[in-house]
Design a protein around this nucleic acid. Structure first.
Lengths: 346, 346
DNA sequence: ATGAAAGCGCTAACAC
DNA sequence: GTGTTAGCGCTTTCAT
């Protein structure tokens, strides 16, 4: 009873319960057990019941990696974000992940930390892990990573930006249009002196450029721009406002307007303005970016640019899953737009 | 030249470049190529160079899944978070992920959405994918998921809470101590009327209970508690303050103090108080939880409870990696503590 | 509807 | 230091 033989010592074996064990217990061939679990409609009701029973009895958990290797489908998707804490994107990641989960996919999350080298390592890793699809925040610049990815044949979706020549699929919006629209909006408000506080990232720079260009076209040249490094914070917004005021004394500020590259730096501007006794929006108009949930309920509530990040995520998931299953998607480039939410700071 | 034979049609083959191709090109056996890539010190310099050259020339990317299957090591870790957008935890996830990346591991991220069913599905999926370690926000209640996990033998680290009987490893702190300490802190300030605004989650409830219990012990019974649902927002903080004021008119508020379960609801309280002309901290003291980066720079700056979430993440990564590599870790239970950051709202 | 055989691409184990 | 052999646990292909 005790020496439950197996004279021929097998070389390895993780010791875990395998599909073969289930099959033996159910009295069927391994492949039949496999079908019972994955394509139950191809199997008789009786066999199905026996297999399910066996699974329960011995606590079988399929080894997905073995299945993936055999079927060349990992049922895993990968996402590369600049950083996990910048919450503008986390809405997108949350809805991406939820949609993928519902479709039976797992998400691997990679943080590039705004480093090209890390990004390339992540890409290499994701190709090696045979991700069924790759999601990117932003566009991927020409370079080794881009070449590798395109050669891999893995479905890719770039997001949160627009381009006429994406690698594969694209779901985003035009930061240039954002900058332009905000400029037009502030001009319509009869503001006549402007400034920009911008984080030092590509998409923020696009908004800033378009903003300044539009203003220049309307006769307002040389708009001061304060750069606040890679991540904007409330404090950097406060300091930036001081810098701007140092260059342009308060007396000139009667119709000043500031476009910030993020809600949090906009909050900094509002905070500093309150500390300095500058009235908002009478003396100073402030526009943020992101529509972070709480800015609607602050005092004063913040005028900002809203982007439907959750929709980017769920649509990206849908696109990736479709493509992973061999279907085409149309259109390959989706502009989901944005809107300016007018509140008390303007 | 053209019909590059292979008369025996192989049944499958993903068409991708494999290690065998590299080996052939380098003129060595596959296992030697494998060693050159994974254990370069076991291989002669010359072979190493030839293999690396071959890899470059044909653009080989190792199929990690095949390697994982053969070695029974996936080099993937899994994390389950309640939600991706609740940024208290994202610091932890960010540092967890960065540390894992540096150690050569990929992170799979799962969102339970506060649902037990989803959590169990995620656990099942992670076991099936043979994660080398599992990271959890919070403790896992007794149930199917817990049983499964413990039976799997996978290293597990529970975080952001404390327990004498974790499944495996634990890195957290005592929410009970937090509640108690905040109560003591406010008592030391000579506050004499208290309230709590709390999200409806397990850990927040622990803080609230301990807070109230400590106050009761000092002669302040029946502290009003406002519950604001699963996720607290700035707006819910504002509304909660109104509810509290409706029950306890302003006249009694001269030494009122409110403990909020999150920084964002604390901000709501501050905002609403300002709208109502209540002076902070003279008439009302407010304490938050989380030390969200920007609350230090607001006006007034927020007194709050700081937890070193990044340290939880990096220590968890270190523990999981060590255990995945067969080493033991000590201690298995780490209390990383917390601190009350005193600022202008108290 | 079920099964036998043959791998998926890699590495552990054991030579030499 | 390098090679041979035999799997890891599953699914595809082809046959019945």
């Amino acid at each position: 009873m005790s020496e439950n033989s197996k004279s021929q010592r097998s070389r390895r074996s993780s010791g875990a319960v395998t599909l073969a064990d289930v099959a033996k217990l159910a009295g069927v061939a391994p492949i039949t057990a496999s079908r019972a679990l994955n394509k139950p409609e191809q199997v008789s009701a009786e066999v199905l019941a026996r297999v399910k029973d066996a699974v329960e009895r011995i606590g079988y958990v399929p080894n997905t990696m073995a299945g993936s290797l055999a079927s060349a489908k990992s049922r895993m998707m990968a996402a590369i974000v600049p950083s996990a804490v910048s919450s503008v994107f986390m809405n997108t990641i949350e809805s991406l992940n939820n949609s993928l989960f519902d479709a039976g996919y797992q998400l691997m999350l990679g943080q590039s930390g705004y480093s090209t080298q890390r990004q390339e390592m992540l890409i290499e890793s994701f190709i090696g892990r045979r991700a069924d699809g790759i999601f990117l925040i932003g566009l991927l610049n020409a370079g080794k990573g881009r070449t590798r990815l395109m050669a891999s044949g893995i479905p890719i979706v770039e997001t949160w930006d627009l381009s006429a020549t994406p690698m594969d699929m694209l779901i985003g919006f035009s930061h240039t249009e954002v900058g332009k629209s905000v400029a037009q909006y502030l001009l319509k408000q009869k503001r006549t002196a402007f400034a920009v506080i911008s984080a030092n990232d590509h998409r923020a720079a696009l908004r800033q450029e378009a903003f300044c260009k539009e203003l220049a076209g309307q006769g307002f040249g040389s708009v001061p721009v304060e750069w606040v490094g890679e991540k904007s914070t409330l404090l950097s917004g406060r300091l930036a406002l001081r810098q701007i005021l140092a260059r342009q004394p308060l007396s000139q500020f009667s119709t000043q307007a500031i476009f910030c590259s993020s809600d949090v730096s906009a909050l900094g501007v509002v905070t500093e303005a309150q500390a300095l006794g500058i009235r908002i929006p009478e003396q100073l108009a402030v526009v943020g970016f992101g529509d972070t949930p709480f800015v609607a309920d602050m005092m004063p509530s913040l005028t900002t640019v809203r982007v439907n990040g959750a929709e980017i995520g769920s649509l990206a998931a849908q696109y990736l899953v479709q493509r992973a299953q061999g279907q085409e998607v149309t259109p390959r480039i989706v502009d989901i737009g944005f809107s300016i939410i007018e509140r008390e700071t303007t």
